[in-house]
């Protein structure tokens, strides 16, 4: 029905309905309380309306996150569709917040809503951006860390869309590994 409405308005429907979440680190509250659903959208036009309406990631205060996930998947490891998965992680140096961060995040969002991972787009769960004083992070989460072919394809296409040089390597970590180790010791499962 949503599809018909969208099309009747002349809007361009997306393959998936997406939910944008916002996390603000308030130590006095429970983690779940700090996580808020902003809104959901399922057309190209509504994506841009939302994107142009919200604060750019580079303007968020430290400790905040945006997460964009397929409707029905919550932006946390524990979600049944994330649990066996992992993430392609982009770690940025501090000065990149003012040069690349917003551009990288927009490319990430477009890869998701445009289903730009060919036959493997169904492997994608969502993407997260963490704004941290020690260096910001952007990641695309996929649902099955053992699905080597899909994970590698997504990593290669993602790297291309970000315009990263061949000299720059990005790593994929399984959530199960990230959850149990301190970030510097987390095992990297794949590299592209």
């Amino acid at each position: 029905q949503e599809l018909l409405v969208a099309e009747s308005l002349g809007k361009h429907p997306l393959q998936n309905r997406w939910a944008l979440w916002f996390f603000k680190n308030d130590k006095s509250k429970m983690w779940q309380e700090n996580l808020r659903l902003i809104t959901k959208f399922s057309t190209v036009e509504d994506f841009w309306a939302l994107y142009s309406h919200i604060q750019p990631a580079s303007k968020l205060s430290s400790g905040c996150d945006y997460s964009l996930f397929k409707d029905g998947i919550e932006p946390m490891w524990e979600d049944s569709q994330n649990k066996r998965g992992g993430r392609w992680l982009i770690t940025l140096a501090k000065q990149q917040r003012h040069t690349e961060l917003d551009r990288f995040w927009l490319e990430t969002l477009m890869c998701l809503v445009g289903e730009m991972f060919d036959d493997y787009s169904d492997e994608v769960c969502g993407a997260v951006i963490n704004i941290r004083a020690k260096g910001d992070k952007i990641a695309i989460w996929t649902r099955e860390a053992e699905n080597r072919e899909g994970v590698i394809h997504i990593g290669r296409v993602y790297k291309e869309h970000l315009g990263l040089s061949q000299k720059v390597a990005i790593g994929y970590q399984a959530h199960a590994d990230t959850a149990t180790k301190s970030s510097s010791l987390t095992k990297t499962k794949f590299v592209v």
């Binding site: 361009h12 393959q15 036009e45 490319e107 477009m110 445009g114 289903e115």
Partner: peptide
């Protein structure tokens, strides 16, 4: 058929609101 949009197509809509 999966609804896919490439980067250029999506960017074509980015500033549609400014013109509206």
């Amino acid at each position: 058929e999966k609804k896919r949009y490439d980067r250029e197509f999506l960017l074509g809509f980015q500033f549609i609101f400014a013109s509206m």
